[in-house]
Amino acid sequence: MGRNIHFEIFRYNPQDTASIPRMQTYFLEETINMTLFIALTRLREEQDPSLVFDFCCRAGICGSCAMVINGRPGLACQTQIKNMPGHISLHPLPVFKIIGDLSVDTGVWFREMYRKTESWIHTRAEVDPTLEEARMDNAVAEEIYELERCIECGCCIAACGTANLRPDFMGAAALNRIARFMIDPRDERSEREYFDIIGTDFGIFGCMGLLACEDVCPKQLPLQDQLGFLRRKMGFAALRQIFKTSRPA
């Protein structure tokens, strides 16, 4: 016999003018190897078909099932009920636009992030598709891959005090994206060009170093180290620009 888990789930349908945000209580018996994703699916199938939440891969790859689980942003499909207390409260991720109940729109936010960071390789090199791809040093490739692992779940944004206070703060996911292109030898963007993207309080200088992003990222991306690296790099870039411009030509 498993525990009888007490769920408290945030309910709100912004499309329905009569809907007011509230917490709704459910009970569900725990089964072996139950994840929060399984529990929510059963609640929807057995108790309340109106319950709204997102999922897709149920394997921690797509990033769509992120929600606030007992106060901490995390992935429902990667949350084992057996590691949780008998009382679980669920909220949608803050910062993002709510679609309904536990579902938020991370897509618009992340598309905007792609646009702001120009999340593609900037190069003037002509690519000849008939030739073998240019080789990359293995160590560099692995370093890039480490930062590429971001599944765009939005947990780091929802956990960030700065992002909660300033809707236009870029957040760790975007800053990590810039760090990824900075170490990519194929991207020809100059230090100045990177500085123009993240060298303000909406970018790296807005980060207050609270490290909630680092502590909640379900893929354990090295966000703390990227943020420190970017601050140093952009801080010194500013000094270099200042001393260059003040020198007589």
Binding site: K97, V108, W109, E112, P167, D168, F195, D196, G199, T200, D201, F202, F205, G206, M234, G235, A237, A238, Q241, I242
Partner: peptide
């Protein structure tokens, strides 16, 4: 939804 204008007289002000 997140297009903001951030005019800055001095590009290195925040730094």
């Amino acid at each position: 939804t997140m297009l903001y204008a951030h005019p800055q007289a001095h590009p290195r002000r925040d730094a």
